[in-house]
Design a protein around this nucleic acid. Structure first.
Lengths: 107, 107
DNA sequence: CACTTATATCGTATATTTACGATATAAAGA
DNA sequence: TCTTTATATCGTAAATATACGATATAAGTG
């Protein structure tokens, strides 16, 4: 299989990168990493954006598998999907192994 | 400094992720990793897209610092910017250190 | 049962991205 | 110099992404 063949794994990776490539969503991930679990409104209050906008961004992150939401009363508790972050790091770590002398002159 | 503060480093990282979050551009990176150096037309021939479109994608990758282009006669030779890939891997590897038990139960 | 709180979704306006044909530029060969 | 080859850029159309107000839903509270 040619290196540039599109596999479901690569599709998943590109979808994750797309979700993370928006500055607001990237920050939401960092907020969630810091607070462990927080509800939509906690995030809304930490940004200048409208609730509807944040809810939409959370949906994108959820659909990329990067976060999980569980209903708790009227609120939704969001937290990072640790497995997906681990998978992402592994994929990026292994990506383009030939091109950048990894683990040789660096680290 | 709060974890979710936007630093120039984070901006650079998000810009790289954005450039990589397009399937065509992701594939171009893999093509370049395989062939080491190739000209625009080599890439055009490996995709169903028009030359103008590929040239535009190459510009995005170049502006994100992910690839470098050097003029060689009428052609432009592109290659991956190894330093930037190394930096990207390092950043992702260090990202969200608290959230995903990295290096403990896995690897 | 109102009322508050928290959220998701709908409809929509605007901005950005993506793709392409046409065209300009630049180098090399006949 | 004319032609070919390789590329970048311009203008533009179509598709997506982004943001917001309005609204619907759902769970508690008095």
């Amino acid at each position: 299989m040619s290196p540039q063949t599109i596999t479901p794994e690569k599709e998943r990776l590109v979808a994750m990168l797309k979700a993370l490539s928006n500055p607001i969503r990237f920050q939401i991930m960092e907020m969630l990493a810091e607070c462990q679990t927080c509800i939509t409104n906690d995030i809304v209050l930490q940004t200048p954006l409208a609730q509807a906008t944040i809810s939409q961004h959370l949906k994108v992150l959820r659909e990329a598998g990067l976060i999980q939401g569980t209903t708790s009363g009227p609120a939704t508790c969001y937290c990072i999907n640790d497995e997906s972050i681990h998978w992402l790091k592994e994929q990026i770590g292994q990506w383009l192994p030939d091109c950048c002398h990894q683990g040789k002159e660096h680290q």
